[in-house]
Structures are given as structure tokens and as C-alpha cells.
Design a protein around this nucleic acid. Structure first.
Lengths: 119, 119
DNA sequence: TGGTATAGTATTAAAAAAGGTACTGTTACG
DNA sequence: CGTAACAGTACCTTTTTTAATACTATACCA
């Protein structure tokens, strides 16, 4: 594994939030309300069932997310954030703030690049 | 692209720091001292030349890192953090803190899993 | 009887990220 | 003359991540 202790800390933290959809899943669960599988799907219109399942399973294994099955038909499964998961909140927050501050810049750069490429 | 504005902010922020080696490269450059290519290699013993080049090029394009070539033989190229790159500092810091606080937990879980798998 | 809702799984394919190895040109050192 | 240091590039392979599509079981509703 990683020998460098500093790298190790980054890796540990990033593993918990990296994945195309993990930050938004966490963001929604951090609102506090438990969410059902299809509620999450509706909140993330572009995610496939498979990817949602995979990400939730991963986060469940990391104990960031709790999965509760209600033995009903039709099935009901609720996902909620754990206390451990809540500890990620400051990370999500700075990411969110930084992103908000710099989305414009990225946009600008992108448009600029597309223009200069035609020169 | 991402329709969801919240996701977009996360994506923007994460794109800048995600990449197996980007956080540590940034971490080292954030110390302030410009670093030469091979100085970075020595700081990241397991990275290949190729990956270091790729990551530096990407971060250069994003204006997180500045590349200065000194026309000498043997060649000398110095990499340093830009002001924009410095704005990532709070993100790196919370990640680092969270990681430091939770490396142990991960370690514990891992050992536990390895044990229970033999049951 | 057919359709809908739930929460998924299985299989395959495609795309993205990372890695491995060899190679470049120039100069200084011994 | 042989070798090392510098800062890479080229080419190819492997691994990881993400996506697309079809499929499952059960119950309720019309």
C-alpha cells in the first residue's frame, strides 16, 4: 500500500468520497432524512440502478451509510447517514464551497480552450 | 455534463484533486518551495515518470501549477504552486485531518475483515 | 389478465485511469 | 570512452470505473 503517511491520509479520506456519485449521495443523506432506493434514484436522475447499488454497498461497507430493510412487499429499504458518515460533512462542505467559487472559472477556461483550438 | 448544480460543484472541486498522486504533489508544492521534476520523483518514490508528467501537465492546464523551464544543459524545470492552486489548501487540509483521524479505523476494519473471511 | 411499483442482480461492453518498459539528447564526470 | 543526471516521450498492457441492457420476485390495482 501507500508508504507515505501523508499520502495515506489523503487516500483514506478520498476513498470515502470518490466515486462519480458518492458526494451527491452523501450530500442528500446528510440532509438527515432516510431515503429509499428509488427516492435516491429520483434525486439522481442520471444514475443507473447498478451504480446506485454499487455505491451504496461500498459506503455501507465503510459504515458511512446504514441500510435498513423492511420485510414488506413491495420491498422497502431505507438508507441513512451514520455518525461516522456525518464526520465527512466538513469535507463535503469545503468541496462544495470551493466548487461554487470556481465553477465559473472552469466554465470560462473551457469556452476559451474551445475557441483557441480552432485557431 | 452534470445537470445538478450541487453535483457540479463537487465535480469541479474533485476534478482538481482527484488522481492517484495529485493530492501529495499539491501537498508538497504547497510547502512553498518550487520543486524540480526529479525532486518530486524523490518525494514520491513509487510514481513513474510518466504519471508524474501526466499529473503535472493536467494541473498546469488547470493553472494550479506553474512550470518554468530554464534553458540549461542538463535541463532544469521548476514546478510551483499558483495562487489559484493555493486556494485548494483548505480542501487539502480538511482531507488531511479527516484522514489522520480515521486511518486507524480503516486499518482496524481491514484486519477484522481479513480475519472474519477465514471463518 | 395485464400493468405497475419496489429493490435490486447478472452479464456484457466501453471508457478512463494507471502502470511498465524502453528510449531520446545533451553535458559533465571519471 | 563509458556512465550518470536531467526531463521528459512513445508505445503498449493492465486495472479500475462506469455504463447499458435485460432480468428477477411479489403484491396491488384496474
Amino acid at each position: 500500500m501507500q508508504k507515505n503517511p501523508v499520502q495515506c491520509q489523503f487516500v483514506t479520506a478520498l476513498n470515502s468520497i470518490v466515486g462519480k456519485w458518492k458526494p451527491i449521495i452523501l450530500y442528500h443523506l446528510l440532509q438527515g432524512k432516510p431515503l429509499r432506493f428509488n427516492e435516491l434514484r429520483r434525486l439522481l436522475p442520471d444514475i443507473t440502478q447498478r451504480m446506485l447499488t454499487l455505491h451504496l454497498r461500498e459506503m455501507e461497507e465503510e459504515e458511512l451509510v446504514k441500510r435498513v430493510i423492511y420485510p414488506q412487499i413491495p420491498p422497502k429499504v431505507e438508507y441513512s447517514i451514520t455518525e461516522y458518515g456525518m464526520s465527512l460533512s466538513p469535507i463535503l462542505e469545503v468541496l462544495h464551497q470551493w466548487g461554487a467559487a470556481h465553477v465559473e472559472r472552469k466554465q470560462f477556461n473551457k469556452e476559451n480552450n474551445e475557441q483557441t483550438e480552432t485557431d
